[in-house]
Design a protein around this nucleic acid. Sequence first.
DNA 1: GGATGCCCGGGAAATTTTCCCGGACATCCG
DNA 2: CGGATGTCCGGGAAAATTTCCCGGGCATCC
Lengths: 214, 214
Amino acid sequence: MAGSGAATRVRVMLVDDHSIVRSGFRRLLEQHEIEVVAEAGSGEQGYALFQSERPDVVVLDLSMPGMSGLELLRRILAREALARVLVFSMHEEAALADRAMQLGARAYISKSSAPEVLVRAVLEVAAGRQFLSPDVAQSVALYKLGGEDPFAQLSAREFEVFRLLVQGESAGAIAEILKLSAKTVANYHTLIKQKLRVDSDVELVHLALRHKLV
Amino acid sequence: MAGSGAATRVRVMLVDDHSIVRSGFRRLLEQHEIEVVAEAGSGEQGYALFQSERPDVVVLDLSMPGMSGLELLRRILAREALARVLVFSMHEEAALADRAMQLGARAYISKSSAPEVLVRAVLEVAAGRQFLSPDVAQSVALYKLGGEDPFAQLSAREFEVFRLLVQGESAGAIAEILKLSAKTVANYHTLIKQKLRVDSDVELVHLALRHKLV
DNA sequence: GGATGCCCGGGAAATTTTCCCGGACATCCG
DNA sequence: CGGATGTCCGGGAAAATTTCCCGGGCATCC
């Protein structure tokens, strides 16, 4: 990068399992003088590349097979508490945005945002600020105002296990993904059902469904 | 096509409710000498623009609020039976791909396809050929080979238990409702999971969901 | 320096799930 | 008619899972 004169270009890493989407983003960002220094198609790859490339900003799609986006977010922040991660999600579910920001994401934007919003968000995050796309902001605000979040009592870790569970992952798979013992996952499973006041996995899925988490 | 000398550029219309995605696609296609002559963010708009712009190829995202992608596809083909429509979908559900191709779509590709696949598909369709991305092709092939309805093998009684189960009724409640012993319900439960080839209740609900049974 | 709360997982008991079995009944067919 | 097949129903016992209880590590907050 022979950046003379103008400010140094922002170095971004893209994490999304759809290469076609990454490809579009790359072109979009590059047209705005933002440099894409790495692309990852999975959580594992994302973590590895994060460490080797040290991008200024990570643009992360939450929904991925294998290691979940949230898990990757958690790991990145565990290693580098000040990492600047911009979460990009298909849906504008408040519950997810809430979790992601709690964990330490710097921005959360939905896929229905205008292209300029992504660019804007990347720049905001690069500058150390937080950012929410308008739809997400409204959604989160209403969600929080409306009180009564059944998931509020779940810890971050529990919530992650919950999401993976209702997405159909087996206990073994979850242990694998989160690097836990199957036993721990089983224990969380029980705890989650208790906290959410349901008796069966079926009700668990229904609850998730009502909150658009599946 | 008045192809003189070099080939005339292909004229494409994009229909997707996410402007951010359209934006990426436009850049991607334009880098491959494909011209994007129109973008629509809804079915209604897509139909109007189709008539005024008469693109060579329509790239259509199936999942949109309001008029569904399938409905737009149907209308376009009703007006112009030979229209070349390329369907682009988030999921690679065979059922959807099946229906879209039955209706007359020329291609169906999933979002997990490589960027080149989209370009390739557009060119194939423009040339009058059909195209399926590899994952979709496999999915559809297996779906067709495997015999459509996964519930076909369930007996009436089993199906009934299945429906109550995925609706969240407990084993005890079902026994009550159907006047069976809880033991019998448990046995059916096992049998149903076997027949439907799933390992957990969560997957059972997902299956029901996909077939709109919840 | 506590007190609190999440994170993680082992051990053992409690409960459920699964497998195997047999009988009642209805249908279809040579 | 006799027999084959398939659904329907549930018991018994083994196998697997869930649940409960526990403790240590770690961070945060007075």
